[in-house]
Simulated scan of single mutants.
Amino acid sequence: MKRVAILCIIVSMLSTGCAKDPFGSFLQSRPQKQQQLTRTELHREAATLKKVIAENPANPSAHYSYGRVLLALDEPDQAVAHLNKASILTRNNIDYLLWLGVAYGKGGNLPEEQVSYSKVLQLHPDHIQALVYLGNSYLKSKKFQPSLNCYRRALVLQPDNEQALYNRAIVYHQLQRRTAERQAWRLYLQSHSTGILAANAVEHLNRLKNFSYRNHRLGHRIVTLPAIAYAPSSADLTRSDLATLDTIGAIAVNMKSGPLDIIVYRKNDETLARARALAIKRYLEREFPLLVVDDRIRISWFNVPEKRTFLGLRTTIDDSTVFLLSQVPAKPIKLRNRDRKKMMI
């Protein structure tokens, strides 16, 4: 079974990596609207909270805060003890139960993690985080259908939820439901088309022989964009095509150096491929005059199909438009003899 990435939950106040599991490396969401503390600051906070608890063992807020700090310090077992204490002292507190589940999950106790999130949902059936986190835990447990049910419920409430959209596609991948998987990746990309997760989603989609989105190497970046589609059997660019070209043109202008290659292939129709390449070149040069300087745009068309490997599967693409933006390395600075002497002083 192919190793795939799963988008995981925020589990600490620090941006830390997640452990590997049978599905591959988790990709950690960065904490939002939450103070980023150094380890020194966390240890100082932990010492303060420990004193508060010693003076007042029945303080649920102190136990909760201490548990959160311990999670950030990668001590999930100790965190569980204090978060559990907080939830016992204050029954039916959704935040306490939610973070207790996070602590169980980080410590690898998936059954108890799922129990905690289920308790949150008993109190608040429409709690988005609990639904998504429970779906993630089920996915790690290979309980695919329960996981899918959680993501579906979450997406009814929040259709653009990134974790639910991405991990739903992962579930379909594991269940080998290819038609549903294609649709799920496209829905994810319609809402989230930037970053490494988008690039991964495109790899999955292209592996399923759907090329409605493509990744392009533009300088040091991989840029995910809707594929150039053209009007049927023509070189006419669509409104969506123009939006994609505007993005590529802006990136090329901002880089200020290096050629932009436009490579087009159309099976059994080299004439149409050439016409399409020329149409793109003319549009970019009209909208971005700086690209005309030094003849930065180069066009070509394949005599053979584009052949690519997506997640280990070799695929032939019979109708493709690829952009490649090379970044010219900076020229070495030549120093005069007197400048060299100054640097040696």
Results as ranks from 00 to 15, higher is better:
residue 345 I to F: 09
residue 174 Q to N: 13
residue 174 Q to T: 07
residue 153 R to W: 14
residue 330 A to I: 12
residue 256 K to R: 15
residue 235 A to I: 06
residue 253 V to P: 02
residue 165 L to Y: 02
residue 211 F to D: 00
residue 312 G to I: 13
residue 245 L to Q: 06
residue 18 C to N: 14
residue 307 K to N: 10
residue 64 Y to P: 00
residue 196 I to T: 11
residue 123 L to Q: 13
residue 76 P to Q: 06
residue 20 K to A: 10
residue 132 V to E: 02
residue 315 T to F: 04
residue 115 V to Q: 09
residue 6 I to M: 09
residue 192 H to A: 03
residue 161 N to Q: 15
residue 142 K to F: 14
residue 80 V to G: 01
residue 267 K to S: 10
residue 245 L to W: 11
residue 107 G to F: 11
residue 322 V to T: 07
residue 132 V to L: 05
residue 280 I to T: 01
residue 313 L to C: 07
residue 218 L to H: 10
residue 40 T to P: 01
residue 10 I to R: 14
residue 178 R to H: 06
residue 75 E to R: 05
residue 228 I to Y: 10
residue 288 F to S: 03
residue 301 W to V: 01
residue 164 A to Y: 01
residue 271 T to W: 07
residue 29 S to V: 08
residue 164 A to G: 02
residue 46 A to V: 04
residue 261 D to R: 10
residue 161 N to M: 04
residue 156 V to G: 00
residue 280 I to H: 02
residue 328 V to H: 13
residue 196 I to V: 08
residue 22 P to F: 15
residue 322 V to P: 00
residue 305 P to C: 13
residue 10 I to M: 08
residue 220 H to P: 04
residue 343 M to S: 04
residue 178 R to A: 05
residue 255 M to E: 11
residue 341 K to P: 02
residue 33 K to N: 08
residue 84 N to A: 11
residue 276 R to E: 03
residue 302 F to D: 05
residue 34 Q to R: 15
residue 146 P to N: 10
residue 148 L to F: 00
residue 107 G to D: 11
residue 247 T to Y: 11
residue 34 Q to D: 13
residue 336 R to L: 12
residue 142 K to E: 08
residue 141 S to E: 04
residue 61 S to V: 07
residue 124 H to A: 09
residue 308 R to T: 02
residue 61 S to D: 13
residue 55 E to L: 08
residue 54 A to C: 00
residue 132 V to N: 01
residue 45 E to S: 03
residue 332 P to A: 09
residue 314 R to K: 14
residue 316 T to G: 04
residue 53 I to L: 02
residue 282 R to A: 04
residue 231 A to C: 02
residue 176 Q to P: 02
residue 143 K to N: 13
residue 121 L to V: 02
residue 244 T to N: 10
residue 104 Y to S: 01
residue 307 K to F: 07
residue 37 L to M: 12
residue 241 D to G: 07
residue 135 G to P: 01
residue 74 D to A: 12
residue 198 A to P: 01
residue 309 T to A: 12
residue 295 D to L: 00
residue 185 W to T: 04
residue 96 Y to T: 08
residue 108 G to S: 12
residue 330 A to Y: 09
residue 40 T to Q: 15
residue 56 N to C: 03
residue 213 Y to H: 13
residue 244 T to I: 06
residue 281 K to S: 08
residue 119 K to G: 00
residue 252 A to N: 07
residue 214 R to L: 07
residue 333 I to F: 12
residue 114 Q to V: 03
residue 214 R to V: 04
residue 340 R to N: 09
residue 99 W to I: 05
residue 310 F to T: 00
residue 88 I to P: 06
residue 318 D to A: 08
residue 227 A to Y: 03
residue 221 R to S: 10
residue 199 A to L: 09
residue 155 L to I: 08
residue 17 G to W: 15
residue 148 L to E: 01
residue 102 V to I: 11
residue 342 K to I: 11
residue 135 G to V: 00
residue 193 S to H: 15
residue 76 P to A: 05
residue 21 D to I: 06
residue 59 N to K: 01
residue 117 Y to S: 00
residue 18 C to I: 06
residue 200 N to Y: 12
residue 236 D to S: 14
residue 262 I to L: 06
residue 8 C to R: 11
residue 139 L to H: 03
residue 45 E to R: 15
residue 118 S to H: 06
residue 278 L to E: 14
